[in-house]
Every structure is written in C-alpha cells, then in structure tokens.
Design a protein around this nucleic acid. Structure first.
Lengths: 243, 243
DNA sequence: GGCAAGATTGGAGCAACGCTCCAATTTTGG
DNA sequence: CCAAAATTGGAGCGTTGCTCCAATCTTGCC
C-alpha cells in the first residue's frame, strides 16, 4: 500500500511514444507548425527533453510519426477496398471518398500540407506514401484500367490529390493567427484578398488572372477539388476506352 | 584617381539583393536546403550578417525570392502565349512545355519541391503562384473549354503539376549526399530500393503495392509525368465535349 | 523481502541558428 | 570640400535541436 493504485495513477503518467505523438499533433493543431519545439513539448508533458529523446530519437522522426498518425486516421481502412471487388462506379466512389478523407484532414490540420510534401519526397518507404498509394491503387484496380497502366494511373491521381490538398490548405503556419474557425468567413475573406491582389496585377502581364479573379473569389475549394478528381476519372475512362 | 576604376572594381564587389539571391540559389543547389544559413551566406559573399539583412530583410523572404527567380527562369515568357491564339493542339503542346519546364527545374533544384508547396499555400499573392497560373491558364484558354470552367480546369492542371514535380524530386534535402549526378544510375538505385521496400511490406495489408512494385522499379519519371498531363488533357476534352 | 541490473526521467549545457544593434566606413548631394 | 545618407561587418541576444549524465524508478532473480 505504499503506492496507491500504481496502475491508474502511474501508468497514466508514464511517458510513451504514443503520448508524445499525441501531444505533438495537439501542439501543431492549436499553435501551428512553428510551435512544435522540444521545449514546448517538454512543458506540455511536464518532463525534460532527455525523456522525450529517449522515446523519439529525432525531431523529424516525430513529425513523420505525427503525419502518419493523422493520415492513417483519415484514410478508410484497407480491408474495405479488398473484400468486395465492386463495380466501376463503386471504384470511382471509393476514390472520391479516400480523396476527400485526405482533403478534410489537411483542412483540419493545416501543417499537413507542407509535411506531406516533405514526407512523400524524402522517404517514399515510410508509412505515409504506401498507405496513400495502396488506398487509391486498390480502387483503380476496379476501374477497368489495363494492368500495365495501374501504376501511372494511380500516380496521377495521388499527385493531383496531394498537390490540391496542399495548395488549398489554410496558411496558418507562422503562428500569426491560429485556432481561428476553419472554413468560415475567414476563408472567404482570404479568397477575397487574393482575388483583389490578382486584379491589381498588371493587366498586360497577367491577362488570364484578370479574367478569372472573380471565379476565384466565389469558388468552393472542396467542390472544385472533387471536380478535378472527376476530370481525371473522365480522362482515365476516355483513354482506356477510346470510343 | 584615388580609387582606380571605381566602376569595374567597386561595382562588382558591391552587395546587392540580386547577388545575395544568386548566392542563395547556388548554396541551395550545391549543399541542400539545410545549408542556406545567414552565416554560410556571409562567408560566401565575404561580408557580415548585417549587410545581408540590409538588403533582404528576412530569411523567408530570401527563400521566396530564390524560388521566384528559378521559377521565372523555368517558365516560358508570358508573351509567347498571348501573341498567337493558336489551335487546340498548340495549346496542349504549350501546356506540356510549361509543365516540363517546371518539372526540369525541380529536378535541377531539389529544394524547390518543398519551397513550392510552402509558397503556394502561404502566399498566393506572391509572384510564384500568379506566374504559374498565368502560364497554364493562358494555354487553357485556347483549349475550347467554356469560360466558366477556366478556373477549375487550370487549377486541376496546376495542382497536378506541382504535386507531381514535388513528389518526383530527388530527396537530397538533409545534406547527406548532395552534388551527386542527377538522374543517372543514382535514380535507378533509389527506385530499386523503394521497389524492394514495397515488396517487403505485408502482402495482406498492401496487395496493390506488391503488384506494381515491378512497374515502379523500371518507370521513367519524366515520361510518366507527361502521361499524367495527357490523361488530364483527355479528361478536359472528354468533359467539355461529351461525344 | 532484498538487491543488483536495466530502463526511464529531468535538466544542465553545447553548438548553431535567425536576427538586432551599432560603430565604422563609403558614397552621395550641394 | 564636407555634412548627410547609405552601406558594411561583426559582436551579441534569445532560441533552437540535441547530447550527456546523475538521479530515480522498474524489473528479474535468489
């Protein structure tokens, strides 16, 4: 009876890789990418830097793990796509679902935008890239695409998805204004300022931007993201089945 | 006659924003993204940090300017696309040219991969995003796409281009091995290791990756990049002209 | 129960970073 | 020619990622 309830009190306080990753994600979400420092993490977990490095080894590794945990949670479980072969239409629907999962994840965690770009280029053997490829590729299989085109088709989709999600992410990295309500009037205000900036450019140098500045002002990111997916899906069927 | 040839000797040594950007690009190219520090820049330009900050103001601003200078050099001049309206086929060809320009630029300057993602999300009002949009959008105009779809179509292309170039970039950021010959046996070796890594994954969790690991081993990045462009272009004509 | 071996913790401290500040120098305008 | 302005180089501040180590806690074994 020296230590009362050694499990409930102690085991909860014990430091673990999972608890560190969890705290890192929380820090990134609430305070931006620049706020993830070892010292901030130490304070949030009431410990020292040495203890953290005992579990995590590296700052980049921690960022990778945080990215991975969020991506895994965002993607549908791989089982769903394999148990049922499905038709072409369900394949398309599954691609939309997986793409939207990633899109929404980046919207919720803006720091993912840059991190995904870093992870995918720097370590395609990590857990993030395979997960995404598997998720999309499993659907491409049921689309009637010849097997020799599977890799190229999946790559095109993944490239678009990651590019689009990154570029539509709310720019809240520098910890200027964080924690603001996502996708509300804030986003409209942001688009409005960009639209104005495009209009104020020299009309001779940028005639196209002048023309579409208005379209850009009122557009819905999410909807347009899906439009792009459908465009690529249309291209896939058009190429694989030239009528 | 106190200072001999004040122009040739002095004017060449004088520090300017352009010279700093030039040195920054050189540093990034030869030693990776992590090597661009104020101290390294000071040594390379034989000056102090104060002098640099007098011209540049900010480290992020310097990175932005370096990115901009490389992107501007990589893209065809805007005039070319506007003087001649051109046919649909020349429009497609121009899109391929602009896309390849960016692709090759990222291949030559691997640090661009992450920087483009950062620039486009954080400051769409900067010079980089408008340039790319204008370049691609000007071509989309001549593709027979209805005007109301210009923005969505251009966005899809730009998203794919930036996503694909980023993800195909050689991962030489951490200054481990830099200055190695680009796109030679080094790339094949890299792809080989990724292919093996994919094969060694659990077959139950990643059936798709197992299947395409071989396709991935021998593929040509650049060619597949163009395949993706053509896929999207096919989708554009298929959607805008449903036969 | 006791106790050595190992695992875990917390924090001091180091090198390097971005950036500010300022005295010294050079250039410029009247 | 000289005062005002622009430019330069470096000392130094605050912060970062990370290493190292003494102290503590946990565990396996008799």
């Amino acid at each position: 009876m020296t230590t009362p309830t050694p499990q409930s009190r102690r085991r909860r306080q014990v430091l673990s890789r999972e608890r560190i990753i969890e705290a890192a994600v929380g820090l990134l979400d609430t305070a931006g990418a620049g706020a993830l420092t070892v010292r901030a993490l130490s304070e949030r977990l009431s410990t020292g830097s040495g203890a953290i490095y005992h579990h995590v080894g590296n700052m980049g590794e921690l960022l990778q793990a945080a990215t991975e945990s969020v991506v895994v949670a965002a993607l549908p479980t791989p089982q769903e796509s394999t148990t049922d072969p499905g038709t072409e239409d369900t394949g398309r629907e599954r691609i939309r679902a997986a793409a939207l999962g990633l899109y929404d994840a980046v919207a919720e965690h803006p720091w993912l935008a840059v991190q995904l770009a870093v992870q995918v280029t720097r370590s395609p053997w990590g857990a993030v890239t395979p997960r995404i490829f598997e998720s999309i590729g499993g659907c491409v299989r049921t689309l009637g695409v010849p097997r020799s085109d599977w890799f190229a088709t999946t790559s095109t989709l993944v490239h678009y998805i990651l590019g689009a999600t990154s570029q539509n992410a709310q720019p809240s990295d520098t910890a200027d204004d964080v924690g603001v309500p996502r996708s509300g009037a804030r986003r409209a205000e942001f688009l409005d300022s960009v639209s104005k900036a495009w209009k104020s450019l020299d009309a001779g140098d940028h005639p196209f931007l002048h023309d579409i500045a208005d379209q850009m002002r009122g557009h819905d990111d999410r909807e347009q993201f899906l439009t792009g997916i459908d465009l690529i899906l249309a291209g896939i069927t058009a190429v694989s089945r030239p009528s």
